[in-house]
Amino acid sequence: MRVSGAFLPWLAAITAALLAWGLYDGLLVAPPDYQQGETVRIMYVHVPSAYLSMMIFGTMAFASAVALIWRHPVADIAAKASAPIGAGMTAAALATGMLWGQPMWGTFWVWDARLTSMLLLFFIYLGYMALWAAIDDPERAGKAAAILALVGSVNLPIIHFSVEWWNTLHQGPSVLVSGGSTIEGPFLRPMFIMIGAYTVFYFTVLIWRMHQEIIARRIRSLRLLQAQG
């Protein structure tokens, strides 16, 4: 804990610096797209939040498996502390996607496989957080939530491959495709800077939240001790 505490100011500083660089590159340097014009700039906030929403849930599922198998309390705390960040990122991905869809596709929302599975991810996040809030005993809550995280992780490959498995209004994959990206460099650079910034942001907030969760558990056990006299 003390080690992560020493890293924290650096992580926060790196987040701020990367965000500033990404915003400058994405909003001022990057050119408009030949088809989508200036709306292409929504990509620099849409793609990082969509990526994080899935990466965070993958982390939570992994931590949940570790918590279930090895009973490691830190894994439990990491999963719990990640959830609100992931839910926020999913909401941001959905909102920025709607703001991009309206001018380009002609609609804020359609029920295609990509958008629907992404909305499902958002509700899984909410259900996960509700489960933690509903059960008082952290050990029991942790077990139930871990199972939900593992069950919910089935949705991750569905989100990723939805644009390949079914006809969707959402475009297909453009960065991770065989034969190289279909996005040209001037768009890719700000996108990757922003993905880096969002990732460091996640770890910064995660450490704050894990810190707080550890303190909250100590408070809980102290109060139980006091109640016993």
Partner: peptide
């Protein structure tokens, strides 16, 4: 923003609000 100001800026504003909200509530 080439006529798309009402889509580009709210997208950035929403993203910023989510991130600021996460930082403030966590701290």
């Amino acid at each position: 923003m080439g006529g798309y100001a009402w889509f580009v800026w709210p997208a950035y504003a929403f993203s910023a609000a989510i991130m600021v909200g996460l930082v403030v509530t966590s701290l």
